[in-house]
């Protein structure tokens, strides 16, 4: 996610000549360092590929493409079949559940939901957190301390309880409103919207603190003082001089926020407060699979595949986050 550049760049050798000629911007230097970190970079690459794959997934079951694909790829997550609890085979690559629904399609669908929730949650946290933190750090003084006390107060609220209350109380009215305003098809999205709001609302706090800390130190730096002397407006200083220097930290932190939001969502779905059936996110699928663990007979695919997908996603996000952090804040300067 942190990687906005298409992957074909990766195949080219690093432009070493350019380094000798012009001093590189911090962003480009970090990018080059990141490309050299093997684990982080391959994890990021894998993530990008799987996002593309998941984006294309719904089209596989479309009738114009489906005949050309292997049967196992073309199931819809809502189709009921007679193959109850079928193990992984040629027909159903990941097996089926109690209703005979194809697990591969359910895992793909669940991963889409989990990723969207993670991305939107992270985006909300970036928007609120960066604005709040930058303003607090830049303005300073009394405003700064007030804004940070607000953050402290929100920190004190137990996040998961807040989200549970939010979902439980607003679910029905929001659903009714959505249906009245936009028509019948939007009912199931109410829960997702609430999840976005709730998860975003609790995940921006740390972001705001980090950004504020950065801004505090940046605004005392020479180049900021210089542009202030030259008569630049506050907005220009913030947008042109301070924020570009903050992005590195923000990007790193975002890659760590996404997994935590995904985990939150999985946890809520596990409790039955997240996405509503028949749709399912990864956490929900796992909760479904846990029931089938016992001493006599275990339908292992129901827990292994969704669990593997979640673990894989989280691992990839964390690895690329690690790689990015090392790239932005190198411990020992290699170049």
């Amino acid at each position: 996610m942190a990687d906005p550049t298409p992957s074909r760049l990766a195949k080219r050798p690093a432009p070493r000549l350019a380094r000798a000629a012009v001093p590189l911007s911090p962003g480009r230097r970090a990018w080059r360092r990141f490309r050299r970190s093997r684990a982080g970079f391959s994890a990021a690459l894998l993530l990008c590929l799987s996002v593309l794959w998941l984006g294309a997934w719904p089209f596989f079951s479309h009738e114009s493409i489906a005949p050309y694909l292997p049967r196992g790829l073309t199931w819809s997550p809502l189709t009921l079949t007679d193959a109850q609890f079928a193990g992984p085979d040629r027909e159903h690559w990941f097996g089926t559940d109690v209703h005979g629904r194809d697990l591969l399609s359910r895992v793909m669908h669940g991963a889409r939901i989990s990723l969207v929730v993670g991305l939107v949650g992270a985006a909300v946290s970036v928007i609120i957190g960066v604005c709040w933190g930058a303003v607090a750090g830049y303005v300073g003084g009394r405003w700064d301390s007030w804004m940070m006390r607000v953050v402290d107060a929100l920190y004190a609220v137990p996040a998961i309880v807040l989200i549970i209350v939010l979902v439980a109380t607003l679910q029905t009215p929001l659903k009714a409103w959505l249906v009245a305003r936009w028509g019948t098809d939007l009912g199931p999205t109410a829960n997702l919207l609430l999840l976005f709001v709730g998860l975003g609302a609790v995940s921006w706090l740390t972001m705001a603190r980090i950004v504020r800390g950065q801004v505090l130190s940046l605004r005392e730096r020479g180049f900021v003082a210089a542009s202030r002397v030259l008569g630049a407006s506050h907005a220009r200083i913030l947008l042109r001089h301070i924020l570009p220097n903050v992005w590195g930290v923000v990007i790193v932190y975002v890659t760590l926020t996404i997994p935590s939001v995904i985990l939150y969502e999985s946890f809520l779905s596990y409790l039955g407060l997240g996405v509503e059936p028949p749709y399912a996110s990864l956490g929900y699928l796992i909760a479904d699979g846990v029931v089938h663990i016992n001493a006599i007979r275990t339908h292992w695919w129901l827990i292994v595949f969704p669990g593997g997908a979640l673990v894989g996603t989280l691992l990839a996000l964390n690895l690329s986050g690690d790689g990015l952090r090392n790239a932005w804040e190198p411990r020992e300067e290699e170049d």
């Binding site: 009921l80 039955g272 059936p277």
Partner: peptide, 21 residues
Amino acid sequence: IAVELQVMWQRELGVRSELRK
């Protein structure tokens, strides 16, 4: 049972329902 009923009604009658837990 809810999931089964939802699909049965949709398939036989063409009506869409939501599940509320």
